[in-house]
């Protein structure tokens, strides 16, 4: 059975008085990965936020439906949402800094998640938090544990957020541009970690990324969004290597213009 299913989801902006997302659908079963790619401003982040029930003020799901673990999220109470977040669904968003409390050290913020969601005692929660910081390949996790958010680099912060998102062993992880601040070697290690979690625990992923190479490597299915519309959707090989829609072709074409392959090849010719 699908862990997460979106059926023709529409998102309405109450202030602008119009729909920003016009019908997004997909199903995600355990161990699977759905990718969402597309134009900046096309509604990728809003779609993810709708799944977590954290749309910005004045925004609402105005059509279609979202089911998480068999439950229609429209019917969830605030309390039920709190129970689902973390344990059933976790998320890493763009702008990592805005999701951490700037005046608290980062380690205890993760330990708190573990304590509340996994019911561990303080000491075990701390140990687990340090372990998670190591799992996301932070060098010297004990030291990072003691740092405040502003004392960490962009990529370190992003990994702290990944650690927090997987801390409660979610069954679905939403990764919205979750590796953009990482160098490619650490990115490769994080992708390995996610692949391990998929295999070991059946973690399912929703991956939003501008990096088509990451999408190619990670995803089973892809949705291509433009201006709130799904222009094309299907298995990753088909979409990325035999795109049908003009916009998908443009996206891939533009991606290749500054693709590393190009600069490697030019040199072989010269």
């Amino acid at each position: 059975m699908a862990l997460l299913s979106l059926r023709d989801v529409r998102i309405h902006d109450g202030v602008g008085g119009r729909d920003l997302v016009h019908g997004v659908s997909f199903e995600l079963s355990p161990g699977k990965v759905v990718g969402i790619v597309g134009e900046s401003g096309s509604g990728k982040t809003l779609t993810c936020r709708a799944v977590l029930g954290i749309l910005p003020e004045h925004f609402r799901v105005s059509g279609g439906g979202i089911e998480l673990d068999g439950r229609d999220v429209a019917t969830l109470t605030r309390k039920e949402w709190t129970a689902l977040r973390g344990g059933t669904v976790g998320a890493v968003f763009q702008d990592p800094a805005s999701y951490l409390n700037p005046s608290l050290r980062v380690g205890p913020q993760i330990a708190e998640v573990v304590r509340v969601k996994k019911g561990l005692g303080r000491r075990d929660a701390r140990r687990r938090a340090v372990e998670l910081l190591g799992a996301v390949r932070l060098r010297d996790p004990e030291r990072v544990y003691q740092r405040y958010p502003h004392e960490l680099s962009g990529g370190m912060l992003q990994r702290v957020l990944i650690a927090a998102a997987i801390a409660a062993d979610p069954r679905v992880l939403i990764a919205d541009e979750a590796t953009t601040a990482l160098d490619v070697t650490v990115q490769a290690e994080i992708l390995d970690l996610l692949a391990d979690l998929r295999e070991r625990t059946g973690l399912a992923l929703v991956v939003v990324s501008h990096d088509l190479a990451v999408v190619a490597q990670l995803c089973d299915e892809v949705l291509v969004l433009r201006a709130g519309e799904t222009v094309e959707q299907g298995p990753v090989e088909r979409i990325l290597y035999e795109p049908r829609h003009e916009y998908t072709r443009l996206l891939i074409d533009q991606h290749e213009r500054y693709g590393l392959d190009r600069f490697r090849e030019l040199d072989h010719v010269a």
């Binding site: 790619v37 597309g38 134009e39 900046s40 763009q94 962009g154 541009e177 953009t180 601040a181 501008h210 088509l212 443009l250 996206l251 891939i252 074409d253 533009q254 991606h255 213009r257 500054y258």
Partner: peptide
């Protein structure tokens, strides 16, 4: 400092 990390391919170009 990372001026194009959040951009889709067309906007990045």
């Amino acid at each position: 400092d990372e001026p194009v990390s959040a951009l889709d391919a067309a906007n990045r170009v």
